[in-house]
Simulated scan of single mutants.
Amino acid sequence: FLIVSLQYYTSPVSDYTFSTEMEALDYLFSEMDERILESEACAEDNELHKMHSWLPDGWVVEVRAGTMRDKMYKFYVHLPTGMRFFSKEDVLRYVNEGKISEWDVKGLCDTISEDNILAQVEFNPDGLPKGWVKELVFRKCNDGIRKDP
């Protein structure tokens, strides 16, 4: 039998693993862990994130212009199903009980097309550190609608 002992270096903050001491030292001197800790501290103080910490994974906040373009409407949207709700209570009722409220937006705001979406905000998106927010801004251009993150 050949027994091979592998040694790894792991950052307790980021969980990044390195196979050589030199890689670990380079990472350590890059001060990446300090930036991660600062970022997490800022996220904890973020009021926008605190206000939406109840929002389940897979849901985004969507802002749309009204039919007369004089008002904006905020919706909570479950992207996988396209279900759209006006309030936290409606979202939680749907998630916990499967019930849908009777609120109707017909005439106030078009919710079928993407033409009047102004932005979508996702809290705790995949691939970003805890507390980060991803916003997509929708812009009309000559060849359709552009979604800028």
Results as ranks from 00 to 15, higher is better:
Thr67Leu: 13
Asn124Gly: 00
Ala24Tyr: 11
Gln120Leu: 05
Asp143Lys: 11
Phe85His: 07
Ile36Phe: 07
Glu122Ser: 11
Glu23Gln: 15
Phe29Trp: 10
Phe85Thr: 00
Ser19Trp: 01
Arg35Gly: 03
Tyr16Lys: 14
Val77Lys: 11
Ser11Asn: 13
Gln7Asn: 09
Ile100Arg: 13
Lys50Tyr: 01
Leu6Ile: 13
Asp110Thr: 04
Lys106Glu: 11
Asp126Pro: 06
Asp126Val: 04
Cys109Ala: 11
Glu122Ala: 13
Val137Tyr: 04
Ser53Met: 12
Leu48Arg: 09
Tyr27Ile: 04
Glu89His: 06
Gly144Thr: 08
Tyr8Val: 11
Leu48Ser: 08
Tyr76Met: 02
Val63Ala: 08
Arg64Ser: 03
Gly98Gln: 09
Trp59Tyr: 15
Pro125Ile: 10
Arg35Leu: 13
Leu2Trp: 04
Met72Thr: 15
Ser101Arg: 05
Leu2Thr: 10
Asp104Val: 06
Ser101Gly: 14
Gly82Lys: 11
Leu25Asn: 06
Glu114Ser: 08
Lys88Glu: 14
Glu31Met: 12
Lys50His: 08
Glu44Val: 14
Met72Pro: 00
Asp57His: 10
Ser113Glu: 08
Met51Leu: 09
Ala41Phe: 03
Arg35Tyr: 07
Lys147Met: 12
Asp143Glu: 12
Met51Tyr: 03
His49Ser: 02
Glu114Ala: 12
Met68Ser: 14
Ile36Gly: 00
Ile145Arg: 04
His52Cys: 05
Pro56Phe: 03
Gly131Phe: 00
Leu48Ile: 10
Phe1Pro: 01
Pro129Thr: 07
Leu92Met: 15
Pro129Glu: 13
Met32Arg: 11
Arg93Ser: 08
Gly58Val: 03
Trp54Glu: 04
Gln7Asp: 08
Thr17Ser: 07
Tyr76Val: 00
Val133His: 02
Glu97Trp: 01
Ile112Leu: 12
Asp143Gln: 10
Asp45Ala: 15
Ser14Glu: 05
Tyr8Cys: 07
Arg35Lys: 14
Lys50Ser: 13
Gly66Lys: 03
Val63Cys: 09
Asn124Val: 00
Leu28Ile: 06
Arg35Thr: 02
Leu118Cys: 09
Ala41Glu: 13
Trp59Asn: 00
Ala43Pro: 04
Lys74His: 06
Trp103Lys: 14
Ala119Asn: 01
Lys99Arg: 15
Glu114Phe: 10
Glu31Tyr: 14
Ala119His: 01
Val77Met: 10
Asn124Lys: 09
Thr81Arg: 14
Asn46Gln: 03
Asp115Ala: 14
Asp143Phe: 12
Arg146Trp: 06
Leu28Phe: 15
Tyr16Phe: 03
Lys134Phe: 01
Lys99Glu: 11
Leu79Thr: 13
